[in-house]
Design a protein around this nucleic acid. Structure first.
Lengths: 113, 113
DNA sequence: CCCATACTTAGCTAGGTAGCTAATTTTCCG
DNA sequence: CGGAAAATTAGCTACCTAGCTAAGTATGGG
């Protein structure tokens, strides 16, 4: 049917959860530790860690350990494939509108003859 | 933590599956019947019907029955909330960059004194 | 050294999802 | 009418996911 793009799968999947979107929302304002995210979300650490892993697999977040604490940072460039996909849909849709337009134009010309 | 937006959940979830994205890709070029989508995807009708239901719940597709056949059409305006979300992330991120810029500027001024 | 902090890992439960086959329903056509 | 075509529904299996608790590891401060 079409070329499977696993990166896009992971990206959309990561964003389909409100907790993960809220975490991203927070991280877009600056880095935070895992427990900061846990406190904000009201979930336990293991749960938050799982969500973080999903965000990391999608490339949306990068983390690193400084001593005991793991610092998490937003990676905005990871959203690019989504913006590109959106743009492609728009392109296809508009091409279709153009064809429709041509079709209607042709119909009207024929009607005139 | 944050206001849960179920519409956005459904939208991203619907798009997280390659089969559903391929179906959308097809529908963006014009309406199609359920069996057309099945033929294209290589999946059985019940499976395709399930994917269609997910797309409909997300508002991405509208369907209607003409006699025996159900016609499916793409609804591009359903992508708007996603574009808005993307834009909001960008806004937050850039505000953060501005604050960083201010901070660095302040640091440099202090160094001069 | 000791202990509190900050994760991390293991493992559980409840509930969801994607694919299928088989059986039913609805509509078109000869 | 009678059968083929196009959906639809019911119900199955095999994962997968989100939340949790409990126990383990590693690091910083006194």
């Amino acid at each position: 049917m079409a070329k499977h793009d696993p990166a896009l799968d992971r990206l959309f999947h990561a964003l389909s959860d409100p907790t993960r979107r809220a975490m991203l929302h927070r991280l877009a304002q600056g880095p935070a530790a895992v427990s900061d995210l846990a406190a904000l979300s009201g979930f336990r650490l293991p749960t938050v860690l799982r969500h973080l892993a999903v965000l990391e697999e999608a490339g949306l977040v990068a983390t690193q350990k400084d001593g005991r604490v793991r610092s998490c940072a937003f990676r905005p460039e990871a959203l690019r494939p989504m913006a590109d996909w959106l743009e492609e849909q728009r392109r296809i849709w508009e091409a279709r509108l153009d064809r429709l337009d041509d079709y209607v134009t042709r119909l009207m010309k024929e009607r005139k003859t």
